[in-house]
């Protein structure tokens, strides 16, 4: 189960996802610079990513509280998500995300 992540310097990393873990946790453990200050509580918006290459549409829709919390994210785009709210599973295998600017 793979996650392809592009960091703020534009460098691409291929990380091993884990079933049931969040994309935020995989990015953080993979050493990417992502603050995730609230530890996945959907309360800080510092785990903001852009979901690329058609993956945005394939994900389950964001919850009401994620949409609300995105109001506190910077530089929001139509493909913005909070990575702590994306759970790794077979259906996310190969997902491509870009860490949003700080």
């Amino acid at each position: 189960m793979k996650i392809v992540a592009i960091d703020r310097q534009g460098k691409e990393h291929t990380l091993e996802g884990r079933d049931g873990w969040t994309v935020m946790e995989i990015l953080r453990d993979g050493g990417l610079d992502i603050a995730a200050e609230c530890g996945g509580a959907c309360a800080c918006a510092t785990c903001h990513v852009y979901v690329n290459d058609g993956w945005f549409e394939k994900l389950p829709a964001p919850s009401e509280s994620e949409i609300d919390m995105l109001d506190m994210a910077l530089a929001v785009e139509p493909n913005s998500r909070l990575s702590c709210q994306i759970v790794c599973s077979e259906t996310t295998d190969g997902i491509k995300v870009t860490v949003a600017p700080e």
């Binding site: 949409i67 609300d68 995105l70 109001d71 506190m72 929001v76």
Partner: peptide, 8 residues
């Protein structure tokens, strides 16, 4: 200005 027509 806000990125969507909805508010938290």
């Amino acid at each position: 200005v806000h990125h969507r027509d909805g508010f938290r």
